[in-house]
Design a protein around this nucleic acid. Sequence first.
DNA 1: GCGACAG
DNA 2: ATCTTGTCGC
Length: 212
Amino acid sequence: MIDVERAKRLQKLLGERALRELEEYPDIDLSELTYVSGVDASYSGNEVIGVAVLLDALSLKLITYSTSRKKPQIPYIPGLLAFREAPAIISALAKLPEKPDLIVVDGHGLSHPRAFGIATHIGLVLKRASIGVAKKPLYGEVKLIDGRELIVAHGRAVGALIRHGGARLYVSIGYGVSLRSSIKLVEFMLKPGVKLPIPTHEADNISRKLSL
DNA sequence: GCGACAG
DNA sequence: ATCTTGTCGC
């Protein structure tokens, strides 16, 4: 079992670092990407099932996927989701035949109480660009800026609320890619009739079947 | 103390 | 996340 207070202190330390480096995160154009991954987790009995799908970045077609099962080392606590799901997800990502250029995570990135949500956590551990896409808000205020609904947290614009087919998606910077590009890339990965970006939708799909 | 609270 | 009945609407 993980020490909750220790985990929060670690997040605060790494989150402050992430906020400092935020300005240096580069714009990343779709043309620079070859592979993109979508990750998700589900549960079966007392195990966390991590799923990582590998897609062609341009066509968004599924190439393959991998999974990993782990015993949760902590109960679900809002703000500490990564300590519960990231181990299985990172393990699954390591099994893919190719390293993705971008990882789309089911959950928040910098729109987190200590600026260190699961998307940022996974991106930093693997040193890969990542974006968080959550179905519900967690932390930060939505403000209209330049005609866009941005998520402001820790004094900075770290994400955006994107309305898609009646639903709302809370997109936030994960790691290594600017907010501007994160929004643009997620919008590209959204398709009519599918609630989530294709990468996480595919991971969700597979993840759900494996928990049965 | 009260309410909020990703998956 | 997962467990679950009925109900509303195309």
